[in-house]
Design a protein around this nucleic acid. Structure first.
Lengths: 329, 329
DNA sequence: TATCTTTGCTATAACGATGTAGCAAATGTA
DNA sequence: TACATTTGCTACATCGTTATAGCAAAGATA
C-alpha cells in the first residue's frame, strides 16, 4: 500500500497523527507478516535497552533464588528482562560481571556484593554511568545507593533473647567474616545482645568462617572439645547450622535439651531435618520485589543527591524443634 | 587528532589496514577517555546480540541452579550473556518468555519445557527465526532440535535392579504426570523393569502427581493404608521422596528395613537427612555445559536438516542409607 | 620517468526504529 | 474567495558501529 516506514512506526505506536483506518490496516498487515519490531534498533535509538543486570554471589541458596524470582516477576511485568550474572563470591569475577553488564547497555543493575569485595571502584563505574544501582542484602554504606535488606544487628538480638528465654546462658556464635557487612552486623548484634542481657562474651566460642556445611562441622567438633561447652549455638548461616547439627547428632548430644541451635536464612532443608532447625526468615520475596521496585522508582526519578532509599525489611524468627526446650511453646 | 570514526573502529578491532602506530595511539586515547563501545549499535549492525535466552520451569531446585550456573560459565567465556526467564511450569508464561526473548533479539535459546506444555507452536516460532534452539532435560522429540538430557527409562532400570538386589519385591512408584516426557519415561522404565525381573505390576501402588513434598506425604499416607503395603518406594523426585520419608518416620516405620526409599535428582538435602535418601545424580553440571556447547556448535554450524544432536548423559545411582539393607554394601 | 601495487586512511551507507520538520490536502473561519 | 488551522502523511536525520568502496600517497617495478 506504499506507506512510509515512519508512518508505519507511528501507526504501530498508536500515534495520534495517523488515521484510525490506516492504523487498522497497518496492524492487520503486521499481524499477517508476523512482524516483530527489532528491539535492538529501538533500544539504540532510544538509549533504553529495557534490560536490567542482576549480580548475585551464587545461585545455590534458596535466599538468592527467591530474590531472583521476585525481581524477575516485578520487572517482567514492566517490560524489562533481566540478565543474571554470578560473581561466585569472587571480586575479580564480580568486576567482569559489571563490565559485561555495562557493555550490554543495561538500564540498571541490582546487585548483592561478593564477600571478597572491598574495592568499590567498579561500583563507582556504574554510578558514573548514571544508571540506577540498587544493592540488596550485601550492601555498602559508602556507595550511597539504594539498598534493600534486613537489620542483621537487631535480628541477632531476637535470636539471643529467644535462646536466653529458653534458659541458655553460654551461647556460641558461628559467624561469617566480618568484612562482609551482614556478618559483621550479626556478630556485633550477638556481642551487644549478650552484654545487654548481662551474659559474658567469650571469644573462644566465637568463630569466623565461610559458613559452609564443612565449616559448621569443623567448628562444632572444636566446640565439643572445650572444657566448658556452650549450651546453645547461633549460626549465621543454615548450612553451618546443619554441619553443627550433624556433628551433634553423631555425638549423641541432644538438641535442644543439651544444646539449642539456631540458624539463619530459612533454607527449606532446615524444616526437613530432625530436629527441625530454628532459623530466620529474611522475607526474600519482599527483598526481591522491593529491590525491583527501587530500580523502577529510580528510572522514573533519577538520582537526586542525598535522596537515597534504604529499605529495611522485618525479619521473623522461626522457632522450631532445635531451640524449643519447653514443649508448651 | 582527527581520525575518522571508521579508522578508529578499525584500529580498535585490530584491522590489518591500520598502522601499528595509529592503533597504539587510538588505544591509548580510548583508555584515557574510558571509551566503551555501544553494544547495542554493534549488535544492530552485525545482527548478533551475543545474548542467549534460557527458559527454565523454576529456579527452586538444585538441578536447575546447577545447570544454569554451568550454562552461564561456558557462554560467558565465549562473550555471551544469558537472559534467564522462568515459566513457573505454566504454558502461558512460557509463551511470554519466548516472545520476550525473541523480541530482545537473542542469538539463541536454551530451554527446559514446562510440564504443561504440549502445544509446540511457540517453539516452532524459534525455529522459524533460524536461531539455535537447544532443549535440556524436558525435551520433545517432535521438535527435531538439539537435546541434552539423561536416559530416564534406563535409570528406572538401575533403580529397580538396585531395590530388587536389596530384597525388595513390591516396589511402589511415586511418578510425575506422564505428559512430561521425563516422567513418562521413568514410569515406563519402572513398569518394564518390573516385568523384565519377573515382578508383578500393580496399578494401585503407582501414582501420578506434581511430585512436591505434600504429594509425597499424601500418597505415602495412602500407601500405608493398603492391606498389602509395598516394601520399597521409588519416587521420581527427591521432594516427593522427602514427603514419603517424613510420613514413614512419623509412623515409626523403619527405613530401609521395613521400607526402602529411592528419590531422583540428587537435591543436596537428601544427604542431610537421617536416613540419608538414595537418589540419582543427573550430572547437572554436564547437562549445563553440554547444552551451552551445543548452542555454540549450532552458531558455528547452522542447522542442516537431519543433523540433530541428541546427547544422553550417564546417570549415577547414589546408594545411601534409605535403601541399604546390607550394611556390608 | 611511467605504471602498478600496497598502505593507510576517509567517506558513505547501512542495521531498524522513531522523533522532528515539512508539506499537501481537507476542513474551518472570516 | 482568501486565509488559517487541522489532519495525515512523507522525508530526513539520528542512535553508534562497521563493511565496503574509494582515494591519495608511498613504495615497487620496469
Amino acid at each position: 500500500m506504499g506507506l512510509s516506514t515512519s508512518a508505519i512506526s507511528k501507526a504501530l505506536n498508536d500515534d495520534s497523527r495517523i488515521s484510525e483506518k490506516t492504523k487498522k490496516e497497518v496492524r492487520q498487515v503486521a499481524k499477517k507478516l508476523n512482524y516483530q519490531p527489532n528491539h535492538l534498533a529501538s533500544a539504540l535509538r532510544s538509549g533504553k535497552s529495557r534490560l536490567v543486570g542482576v549480580i548475585i554471589p551464587r545461585n545455590n541458596s534458596n535466599f538468592f533464588s527467591s530474590v531472583l524470582e521476585n525481581i524477575e516477576e516485578v520487572l517482567n511485568a514492566k517490560g524489562y528482562n533481566i540478565i543474571i550474572t554470578q560473581s561466585n563470591e569472587s571480586f575479580e569475577k564480580e568486576c567482569k560481571c559489571i563490565e559485561s553488564l555495562l557493555f550490554t547497555q543495561v538500564d540498571g543493575i541490582i546487585a548483592s556484593m561478593a564477600n571478597e569485595t572491598t574495592d568499590l571502584s567498579y561500583y563507582e563505574k556504574i554510578k558514573a554511568k548514571e544508571i540506577p544501582l540498587v544493592l540488596f542484602d550485601r550492601g555498602e554504606l559508602d556507595l550511597k545507593v539504594d539498598y534493600v535488606g534486613i537489620d542483621d544487628y537487631e535480628t541477632s538480638f531476637k535470636i539471643i533473647d529467644h535462646l536466653v528465654a529458653q534458659g541458655c546462658s553460654r551461647i556460641a556464635h558461628l559467624g561469617g567474616y566480618d568484612n562482609t557487612r551482614v556478618y559483621g552486623n550479626r556478630i556485633r548484634g550477638y556481642v551487644d545482645a549478650l552484654e545487654k542481657r548481662g551474659l559474658p562474651v567469650d571469644e573462644t566460642i566465637i568463630s569466623k568462617s565461610t559458613l559452609r556445611l564443612e565449616d559448621g562441622r569443623r567448628i562444632m567438633e572444636k566446640l565439643l572439645k572445650l572444657p566448658n561447652r556452650p549450651d546453645a549455638i547461633y549460626a549465621a548461616s543454615d548450612f553451618a547450622a546443619l554441619g553443627a547439627l550433624q556433628v551433634l547428632n553423631e555425638h549423641g548430644i541432644k538438641v535442644p535439651e543439651d544444646m539449642a541451635l539456631v540458624g539463619f536464612s530459612n533454607e527449606p532443608f532446615t524444616s526437613y531435618l530432625s530436629p527441625s532447625i530454628s532459623t530466620v526468615n529474611q522475607n526474600s520475596e519482599q527483598i526481591g520485589k522491593l529491590a525491583a521496585e527501587a530500580f523502577l522508582n529510580r528510572i522514573e526519578n533519577p538520582i537526586e543527591e542525598g535522596a537515597i532509599n534504604k529499605i529495611i525489611i522485618e525479619t521473623e524468627l522461626l522457632v522450631r524443634a532445635s531451640s524449643s526446650k519447653n514443649s508448651t511453646e
